[in-house]
Design a protein around this nucleic acid. Structure first.
Lengths: 119, 119
DNA sequence: ATGACACGTAGGAAATCTCCTACCTATAGT
DNA sequence: ACTATAGGTAGGAGATTTCCTACGTGTCAT
């Protein structure tokens, strides 16, 4: 059973659907590769639970692990998030139109308010 | 209990972690607002199961529903996907560097290959 | 009013997720 | 070799997800 793009998207989006895992990604982005203990420190959770979150991120390809002595350095991997952005691409034109439309409506409402204020 | 941005991201990403629901979003983007039967036709699934998927999309704010006679027109809503793109923003610079780095490595490998071919 | 249609809710089974405690493995320092 | 440290796996409880069948609600047509 090959890993289809569909399945990879499933895994990536599911991995992103947890504040803990999103925070891990943010830390790796802002502070660079880190060992598990450094990442885990921020979360009030037993270690094995945190290990499980790392496993989900690993299996989604969002992070990779490099062994260094008895530590394991986790590093952010760019490809899956880039694929998310590409998935988002076709929706961008759509929401530009809709949000522009909304902005027009709000602009007209402001105009009306101003006229109300003046009159 | 207010709905934090964190919680909204949870719901949106969880909603996107299903091929059925992503396909619904694609249909609404490409074919515009549609009644449930039109959307459900493509899926080999009992109606109530499909209704459940629509509920998940609704509660994530990804779609909205408008009643029209005995049909309900579902429409794609732009805001949550736009928020996903904004969430992705800070990662973009990061992966540009990493992917550029990878491209450099590949370029150097190709150069080496060429030299090998020539020599 | 009555039947048909569009769509939803109720409730339940099986799978999956997220947390836990207990235990295992590998490396580093003495 | 022995102990401590870093981080994982095993297994289980409770909540959630995803599907189902059965049934309810509102709207249209006759």
């Amino acid at each position: 059973m090959p890993t289809t793009a569909e399945t990879r998207h499933d895994r990536v989006f599911a991995a992103l659907a947890s504040p803990v895992r999103r925070e891990v990604l943010r830390m790796l982005r802002e502070e660079g590769p880190q060992p598990v203990s450094s990442l885990a420190g921020r979360f009030a959770m037993a270690r094995p639970s945190f290990s499980e979150h790392l496993r989900v991120l690993r299996e989604a390809g969002l992070v990779s692990e490099r062994r260094a002595g008895r530590q394991r350095l986790y590093r952010l991997e760019p490809v899956p998030l880039h694929e998310v952005q590409e998935w988002l691409g076709p929706f961008e034109r759509f929401w530009r139109e809709r949000l522009a439309g909304l902005r027009d409506v709000l602009d007209r409402m402001e105009d009306t308010d101003e006229r109300d204020d003046i009159s």
